[in-house]
Write a protein that binds this DNA or RNA. Structure first.
Lengths: 210, 210
DNA sequence: ATTATCTTGTTGCATCTGCAACAAGAATAC
DNA sequence: GTATTCTTGTTGCAGATGCAACAAGATAAT
């Protein structure tokens, strides 16, 4: 976006550690962090993926949010405590960049370039996080499954500059993302297909026709 | 939150203008900004309120987001262009702080304190924006109107440290915020009342009983 | 003071959607 | 190579929800 910070290069070039920034590795199903203790912690996924999980008041466990490479997360983004237990679970072997929000205010002793780059680069990551959240809100705000799907497909299609595209999510995950029942989604998908709005080749390859 | 930047004091003390930061006033129904031209513009509501509006593909106009005092907005938060025309409309007499994202990189000529404070303070505003968005996503993700309402009430109640609270929104606006049909919401409200989950005195005063 | 507008409140109805339950194919683990 | 898990696909059904339409009270505008 606006400046040329690139988290990928950044993490690749990370040789000499900054004392305020850690990189930790997690095995599948390990807890990366809980959202009770680490109020000011910010994390960035370097490799792998993780789920933010909640035990809600009925005791069911659900996925609140999914984090993939270069996503930013942390309790600092969840100021309002809904009394739910939130924690982040590694979905696979995962590498996480961990630091505290105070890196904005306090320079590290070495005054390292690494630290400085992160401070400059983080805003962009947060901005793109906001964008993602806004996008999801747009989708969740649509009242029907049909509208959710059509809007989602349009966006993916525009992103790929192509009417035909492979979904970046499994259909199961897509239903979760749109917060709709999977079977109801499959039904609507079938209707959209039969009405000629979309074509569905393979499993997750879709062509917008309208 | 983490540092003691306070946008309220900040804007009150704004006497000598920074060349990179503007304050503009708008009358009711004036267009504050469009989301086509001003890609890197960031705005903060100082007084009044405004709506982010969209003309969607069916031609209907709808409110995408509502901004109140000290809310941050701008096209920069909407990276993915859905080909919709987005613009921000003043709902009343409104005062807006306007600047460009590049204030992060480029200091102004005067090197003024004002500029510096904003750069330090903006991250907090954005973080609380992210919090708000996450909260809304949590609500929108609930599958039933009942769950949306109960979760919303719990949050407001916890925020106010009180089982009894006055809704910060009109019921009409609440339905919009939760993206549900108002009449269906009224129906559910009545059910919740009759089942003893809530008490509803006045119009917008609610007591959680469960 | 009198409109005009906005908000709350209600109902009937059609249909959309979640849920449960199941089956088959694909991918992964051991 | 076989078992296990995950994903896609399908259906019936009951209940939830959106929509349309209306009425009355509250606010705001002139």
């Amino acid at each position: 976006m606006k400046n040329n910070f690139n988290i990928k290069n950044f993490s690749n070039n990370l040789i000499s550690y900054c004392e305020k920034i850690q990189i930790k590795s997690f095995e599948k199903n390990e807890i990366i962090t809980t959202y009770i203790v680490n109020r000011n912690q910010i994390c960035i996924v370097l490799e792998g993926s993780a789920d933010l999980m909640r035990y809600d008041f009925n005791g069911n466990q659900m996925i609140v949010e999914r984090f993939h490479q270069f996503d930013v997360f942390g309790e600092i983004f969840y100021q309002i405590n809904t009394n739910n237990e939130l924690f982040v679970l590694a979905k696979e072997k995962t590498k996480i960049l961990i630091f505290n929000y105070d890196i904005f205010e306090k320079k590290c002793k070495k005054n390292c370039k690494f630290h400085e780059e992160l401070v400059l680069g983080l805003p962009n990551l947060v901005l793109s996080k906001v964008s993602d959240l806004n996008l999801r809100i747009e989708l969740l705000s649509k009242k029907t499954i049909r509208d959710k799907l059509i809007t989602y497909f349009k966006i993916i299609s525009e992103k790929n500059f192509n009417k035909t595209f492979t979904l970046p999510l499994s259909l199961t995950d897509l239903a979760d993302y749109l917060s709709i029942d999977r079977s109801a989604m499959m039904r609507e998908l079938k209707t959209l297909k039969s009405e000629g709005f979309i074509k569905k080749s393979d499993k997750n390859k879709i062509t917008l026709l309208s």
